[in-house]
């Protein structure tokens, strides 16, 4: 099998995945407790009003027809209007999604920048003071809940030292970054601990590989041996882990955005659940699931780039 065939096959896999996500979200919404129409119109609506709304929502059709309608609307990006905000769901999410995208992107960058060099130091000094210090520090990070870390960061760096704002998103790109630094740190901490642990173990596994000794035997510089032969090979597994962590990172964003009052989709999700804003919940679930499966796809492709054995 050629790598091209593999790639096409992998890309095609996304279709059944997305279809499955669609079915799950559709079924979930139909299983939600409480009648959507009642919660939209309130308990005192007339029978006529209820019937009209049911018809306009397509709830009088068969389940199969409703599903087709749901898919068609989803593909067009039309999810109806938000019950709580009264504006189209698509527009609402379009306002919020970039905030969360930026928050998670910053968290990934922070996690990687923290984890990679420290994993390297820890592995090269395995079982000695630097390694033990790094591992203990990260263990603390790993075992602290995000909301707790967030509150500590808030009270120290925002309330006490006043280096950062206590919440919000600001205006303008740099101001956004400034506002998101603390929440991104809170979000990054446990991811970076997971990455650090994984990469440290991977480096320790690779550093004694025969091909590393062979590279040393060739007389190439020690720096090249470390970066090209040890770190590169060790990173392959860690990249996969990072890709697979995006889902839980989005879950963490819900908490972080709540603690730091960041107006992203995580916050929107929490608010919508409390407000029973079904159209928003449905659209968000769908979009986040699609985002996660696209990250998985990107992870696989990146792995193929890093590891020539895949797809041959």
């Amino acid at each position: 099998m050629s790598r091209g065939t593999w790639l096409v096959g992998r890309l095609l896999q996304i279709i059944p995945t997305l279809l499955l996500i669609g079915v799950v979200v559709f079924v979930l919404v139909h299983l939600l407790p409480g009648d959507i129409v009642t919660s939209m119109l309130g308990d005192h609506a007339t029978k006529q009003a209820v019937a009209n709304l049911r018809r306009s929502l397509g709830l009088d059709r068969t389940l199969a027809e409703q599903f087709v309608l749901f898919v068609r609307n989803a593909l067009r990006g039309s999810f109806g209007d938000s019950l709580a905000h009264g504006i189209p769901v698509a527009r609402l999410i379009a306002q919020r999604l970039p905030v969360t995208a930026m928050l998670t992107a910053m968290a990934v960058v922070i996690a990687v920048v923290l984890a990679v060099p420290l994993a390297f130091v820890a592995a090269l000094r395995a079982e000695r003071a630097p390694d033990i210090a790094i591992r203990v520090a990260f263990q603390v990070g790993l075992s602290s809940p995000i909301f707790y870390v967030g509150l500590v960061l808030l009270s120290v760096f925002a309330a006490w030292l006043r280096w950062f704002p206590v919440g919000g998103y600001g205006s303008g790109f740099l101001d956004h970054i400034y506002h998101l630094i603390l929440p991104a740190f809170a979000l990054a901490l446990s991811l970076s601990a997971i990455l650090m642990r994984n990469l440290r173990a991977a480096i320790l596994g690779v550093i004694r590989a025969e091909y590393v000794d062979f590279a040393r035997a060739k007389g190439i510089a020690a720096r090249l041996v470390l970066f090209r032969h040890v770190l590169r090979n060790a990173l392959i597994a860690t990249v996969t882990l990072l890709g697979l962590s995006i889902g839980s990172l989005l879950g963490g964003a819900v908490v972080t955005e709540t603690v730091f009052a960041v107006p992203g989709v995580g916050r929107l999700m929490v608010d919508s659940i409390f407000a029973r804003d079904y159209p928003v919940i449905e659209a968000l679930t769908l979009i986040l699931a699609v985002v996660v499966s696209i990250t998985f796809l990107a992870t696989d492709i990146l792995q193929m780039v890093l590891d020539p054995r895949i797809g041959r």
Binding site: A209, Y211, D213, R216, G219, I220, A222, N233, D307, P308
Partner: peptide, 23 residues
Amino acid sequence: EQVRGAGIGTIFQEPMAALNPVL
């Protein structure tokens, strides 16, 4: 490093293990 490779070459028993699989 200058002696290794240029003065003394080395080959190992298991070529599959001694060659870096991703280069």
